[in-house]
Nucleic acid binder design. Structure first.
Lengths: 205, 205
DNA sequence: TGCAGATTAGCACGACCGTTCGTACTAAAA
DNA sequence: TTTTAGTACGAACGGTCGTGCTAATCTGCA
């Protein structure tokens, strides 16, 4: 099973590049050079560049699941789980060992007008994540941790905005206050939606 | 002055492409083909691809100034001007005739790890805009339209997040509710900062 | 140990990239 | 009128892109 090891090496190196420079920077030639493979040798593992990109996105999904979803699900349902989910979400790529930013966020901007399988893959990953967030918000509402008439979709939408602002703040501006800003914004959104301020303290730590 | 006309044609076509497909999609060859010029003929107007990209960014800046800043400044200082500024900001690129999204926002994601003159240009454009927003927020605070202890920097940061969420919502997800979501979020931020709800009605229209 | 099949290298391809060159034509400056 | 600068062309440069083909090498199993 030498193949799997090589493939893993390629995927891991590719993820770094995708994270740091976006899809445009992930080229078969450069990736082959970095992994001490020939272009054709690497190419043999995937059947096309598209397939490579999708494999990378799948790997990113797995990574996010392991570093964000899994640990968050160990928290009790409702506001605690939601807080854990969002807290682990912000900056997850760095914590997962990626030197760059979130690959899916990058795809949201790089592929907004590029139809195709890769875009669809980014779209489904994003949709899946937002659905999970939505479920967590709904649980918090149902458990009375948030106002019963809170607009769950709107909350998720705003959380996504905070995430993107955090992404740009960290990656482009290298703003050292990005984390604090994001937590403030998060607390504000949840507080307005009825969260008990005491329960949000953890987020300000 | 045939030169200026040709240059304008190139810039205008280039802006469309930059807006629709990002920097990677603006290539000298394709741009030349679209403007019925030879590659070298087009190249003579700019001295490098970098210079082309900067010229495009400058044009985008001018466009934004004309479509966002200028009309907003006709509103009275304080909350009204701030509301106008933000209202004109969201979706300005479409209103300016661009078929794609905001070129500067695209640059924030595409060039986050690509040092160079182009990145610096995006950075300065973004910084300039945020400074303007910051000034408008401060005026609203000083005039008593917002709480005297409102955190202006935090407000600007969150507005940027709403803008990015709106961008993704419109460009990637083609979400028809993007505008409404953004306005809700905007109203929430300002209301929490002390704005009179009645003064925010205009934003909900 | 030897063989079958998986794995990788080598090479070539057509396309496109940004850039440079030499060369026209045009219009303003001398 | 002569000179010069700007504008545009076609051809070509060295590179890199993704993708095929064939041949060699290596691996795991009998």
């Amino acid at each position: 099973m030498k193949s799997a090891a090589t493939r893993d090496k390629v995927i891991s190196e590719g993820l770094q590049r995708l994270s740091e420079g976006g899809f445009a920077s992930v080229t078969i030639g450069r990736l082959a050079e970095a992994t001490n493979l020939s272009k054709s040798g690497l190419f043999a593992h995937f059947q096309s560049r598209e397939a490579l990109e999708i494999a990378l996105l799948d790997a990113a999904r797995d990574m996010a699941h392991k570093h964000v979803v899994e640990p968050a699900l160990r928290n009790p349902e409702g506001l605690p789980r939601l807080m854990a989910l969002v807290g682990l979400w912000f900056g997850w790529s760095a914590r997962a060992g990626l030197r760059g930013g979130c690959p899916i966020a990058a795809g949201l901007f790089e592929l907004d007008d590029v139809p195709g399988v890769v875009r669809d893959c980014v779209s489904s990953a994003d949709q899946e994540w937002r659905a999970l967030l939505r479920t967590a918000v709904q649980a918090a509402i149902d458990l009375g941790h948030l106002y019963p008439d809170a607009d769950g979709d709107q909350i998720v939408w705003e959380l996504c905005g905070i995430y993107l602002a955090h992404h740009v703040s960290m990656r482009f501006h290298r703003d050292p206050h990005a984390g604090r800003r994001a937590r403030h914004a998060l607390v504000a959104v949840l507080q307005r939606s009825g969260a008990n301020p005491a329960d949000l303290q953890a987020a300000s730590a």
